[in-house]
Simulated assay, not measured.
Amino acid sequence: MKIITIIGARPQIIKAAAISRAIKNKFSKEIKEVIVHTGQHYDANMSAVFFEELEIPKPDYNLNVGSGKHGEQTAKMLSGIEEIIENEKPQALLVYGDTNSTIAGSLAAAKIGVPVVHIEAGLRSYNKSMPEELNRISCDHMSTLLFSPTEQGVSNLQKEGFQLGNEGPYSIDNPKVYHCGDIMFDNSTYFAEKANTDSEGLKEVDFNTPYILTTIHRNANTDDPIALNNIFKAITYLAKEKSETIILPLHPRTKKMMDQLLTEELQTKLKDLPNVKIIDPVSFLEMIALEKNAKLILTDSGGVQKEAYFFKKPSLILRPETEWVEIVAQGAAILCDADYDRIVAAYEHFIQLDNIEFPHIFGDGMAAEFICNEIITHIK
């Protein structure tokens, strides 16, 4: 069986590692994988290094679409993927998550009649102003096999009319929904030990000193002067008044927006606080090392808040809502948005807790093998 895997953004490259590893180790005689990189993110720090350290096969195709407006970017991907599908004639096309690469791949395949396999199906933030929400909803409704990492995801799909327990043959009109666990949990489990030894790029981080790991990248935070100043006001408070060490891997674009939008007073405070350590973007293994050793995680990333849970770290989520509602319901994360008072209050809440429960809600670390088995069984 030939499947086309669509990747385009850094999180998708990481997720793809789990499926590619399962194919290589257990399903190489049953599945031939053709990897298509749309080029949605493509520079050494955001893409290439991940293929190397996660041992992912290099892409068979790269569309090199680069950045651009949503419509322009998606249209280029749609055209390029459609041509590849026609040339390769796969039995299925596999997509991850909720990016423009995901929606483009789903549209191209569904219109030609190639079954779409959606990994991370059923996630909902219930905020349609987010492009990701529109992408994930649309992709689910074009998919034949839908693999949800959580029970909540399955419940979300049921509310939208998906039926459970369908019998084959499966198609876009008769899709099958699975609760399979999270392939990012597969990866975090697999690479956790390696991350301890492959983090030489973090020489400026003292793992023996407790620290708060912070990541900021969403446009709603980086491009809004009020939001960005509120977040950094909270960071400087934690560093100065609470003597917390803050580790902040910072993408150049976020740094650029800080220079443009932060008040002079805040910029001066940040420069005068040696315990606020702004470092270059990190690789996946370095990020795992940072997450494993942090005392607390402050983030607007969907992936990082979930990985915080994997490593039993409480998280302060710099968003008004999250698609990972389970970790908030469990009491392992608090939604703070870009609100100074809520960030500080959430910090105080977690610092005073002696024990936080992190039950297994993301599967057993074997989701990739389960997915491959089901693809072989049900895609003809």
Rank of each mutant, 00 (worst) to 15 (best):
R10D: 08
I13H: 03
K26G: 10
I35M: 06
T38F: 07
G39E: 07
H41D: 05
N45M: 15
F50C: 04
E52S: 14
V65W: 01
T74D: 06
A75C: 13
E88T: 08
A92S: 09
D98L: 07
T99D: 02
I103G: 01
I103V: 14
I103W: 02
A104G: 10
A110K: 00
K111D: 05
I112M: 09
I112R: 04
P115H: 04
R124N: 06
S143C: 09
E151A: 14
N156Y: 02
V177L: 10
M184Y: 06
F191D: 11
A192Q: 13
K194V: 13
N196H: 15
T197K: 15
E200L: 14
E204C: 12
Y211K: 13
I212E: 10
T215W: 03
T222R: 05
D223H: 15
A227G: 11
N229E: 10
K240S: 11
K240D: 00
K242M: 10
K242D: 07
P252T: 00
K256T: 15
T263K: 08
T268H: 13
N275G: 09
A289F: 11
A289D: 13
K292W: 03
I297H: 05
T299V: 10
F311L: 04
S315F: 09
L318I: 09
V325A: 09
E326G: 04
G331Y: 07
A332S: 14
I343K: 02
V344R: 03
I351V: 15
F358W: 08
P359I: 00
